[in-house]
Design a protein around this nucleic acid. Structure first.
Ligand code: FES
Ligand code: FES
Lengths: 144, 144
DNA sequence: TATAAATAGGATAAATTTATCCGAAATAAA
DNA sequence: TTTATTTCGGATAAATTTATCCTATTTATA
């Protein structure tokens, strides 16, 4: 469904959000340990999220990654997915035709579009805050 | 969503089904031209479908691939997807946790499961016949 | 200012997926 | 039986994704 990079990116963002509630910055080392991902690869993904203004990095000693407290509730999953995987998940043909088009549909277009749109809607209406709260309360998990 | 191999496999199966209605066998060459896919790679995927008893191969001169006429309506998309991509699309965690489990859910488990189950249902209730008829009638397309 | 700690980023490697090639085996037809 | 045609299957290559490593840059603090 999503690339590994995107999976790590989402999990990392949730972990950063959780810590940002308490004003705490976190490092790639801590992140990768808490979400069970390769450290250097995760760091690369974090850089991409920084470039897309979804998370903030503080360089130098006592630095780390953080998300503006009041941005946490406004960041939707779709923004993270688009920053890492692009928009092919929303617009791409389920059977790999070069373009997905009502006027030139593949055999599963109608059925596939319904599901693709629901996925899109889910990603557009799910924000980092609710996901981070789930982790904080112990209702959900970021590793294993 | 699906791997390239799976996309080719589904499109090839639909094309074979369409021809099998008329008792016509088709070759990897013809298939790859009609679905716009790499020939040798497509041939490999066809072999996998043969091993899974979803399509039949006739070896030797005047051979090719065919699907039993009365099997066309009984073959569901899910069988093709499982033969090529396995079942990770049905059971895998959306955020890449090793196991997707109600008792150890990732933050998006509840929302993701809904969509994953709908995709599963769609693949389980869509058969090759209806898809092949769409191609035959010109309502849908297998390439470009 | 010097030092230590941390992110940024380029180069590279490993793993996986996608794709190609070629000879072996099977089979219909001459 | 020979030939032509076609699938089968192993080996290999190319492309992409995933992952690691090392150095430069930034910055707080002593
Ligand atoms: S054309 Fe295939 S999903 Fe739209
Ligand atoms: S645990 Fe992640 S989708 Fe079920």
């Amino acid at each position: 469904m999503f690339s590994k990079a995107c999976e790590y990116g989402i999990r990392a963002s949730i972990f950063i959000a959780k810590n940002s509630f308490e004003g705490k910055l976190v490092s790639p080392k801590e992140i990768s340990e808490e979400i069970n991902s390769p450290k250097a690869f995760t760091a690369k993904i974090l850089q991409a999220l920084v470039r897309n203004d979804l998370i903030k990095s503080v360089k130098g000693a006592h630095g780390g990654f953080v998300i503006d407290k009041d941005a946490i509730a406004t960041i939707k999953l779709t923004q993270i997915v688009e920053a890492i995987d692009g928009d092919k998940i929303y617009s791409g043909c389920g059977l790999g035709l070069e373009i997905c088009d009502e006027n030139h549909p593949c055999p599963v277009h109608d059925k596939f579009k319904v599901i693709r749109d629901e996925l899109k809607h889910m990603l557009e209406t799910t924000n980092l805050e609710e996901l981070a709260l789930g982790i904080k309360s112990g209702a959900s998990f970021l590793k294993i």
